[in-house]
């Protein structure tokens, strides 16, 4: 059995030998490679009349990217979650000041935010500067994945918030307190969604 590395080498050699792409695809199909694998292998080389074949840049997966973007994602997730918790506790305190039980929640949320906010902002500005200096880094596969995972989470939270509002309304629990809390969730999740969406559109998501 040959690995996909052998496939890449074969395609390069075949292109160097002046075979055309349809011919190469046809023999590879006969050899049992899937259409998907063949397309990937051929797309690794630019379709220009030049010898030797010109390699195309590929999306890259690096451990460094994983470290930075997973850290940013975690900081964002925890920061946003506890910001929601903190604002909810403050709304409770404003509208119904009897509960002292929220004190621990507030202290914990404050501690989380003091760590995550500076961390996220620092990493985000640092990555932005790095991307601006070298646009080739935008091909990071992990960066794209993290952007879409963040969008997925934000969208899920927004939809969940909408469901909660409708349920509360039908259940007769739609109070001012609830409305404000739902608004906080929608504002934060919507903000993150909009930010990542716009960033992705510009090809400069951070």
């Amino acid at each position: 059995m040959a690995s996909s590395k052998d496939l890449a080498v074969f395609v390069r050699d075949a292109l160097s030998a002046g075979k055309n792409r349809a011919e190469i695809a046809s023999v590879l199909t006969q050899a049992g490679w899937s259409t998907h694998e063949i397309t990937d292998a051929l797309d690794g080389w630019a379709d220009v009349p030049f010898a030797p074949p010109v390699p195309r840049p590929q999306t890259v997966v690096t451990a460094r990217d994983f470290f930075i973007y997973a850290l940013m994602f975690g900081a964002l997730l925890f920061g946003a979650g506890y910001l929601v918790g903190l604002l909810h506790a403050l709304i409770d305190h404003l509208l119904d000041a009897s509960a002292r039980t929220a004190d621990h929640r507030i202290r914990w949320a404050v501690a989380v935010l003091i760590v995550t906010l500076p961390l996220y902002l620092w990493l985000a500005t640092r990555e932005r500067a790095r991307l601006a200096a070298d646009p080739a880094l935008q091909r990071s596969a992990i960066r794209n994945w993290m952007t879409y995972v963040t969008l997925l989470f934000a969208a899920a939270v927004l939809l969940g918030d909408l469901v909660a509002v409708i349920y509360a309304f039908l259940n007769g629990d739609f109070t001012l307190q609830f409305a404000l809390k739902a608004l906080v969730v929608a504002g934060i999740a919507g903000g993150i969604f909009g930010y990542y969406r716009a960033g992705d559109g510009r090809g400069a998501a951070v």
Binding site: L83, L86, A89, L90, D103, I106, A109, V110
Partner: peptide
């Protein structure tokens, strides 16, 4: 939010 949390 942090400052008002601490104030509370």
């Amino acid at each position: 939010a942090v400052v008002s949390g601490l104030a509370v």
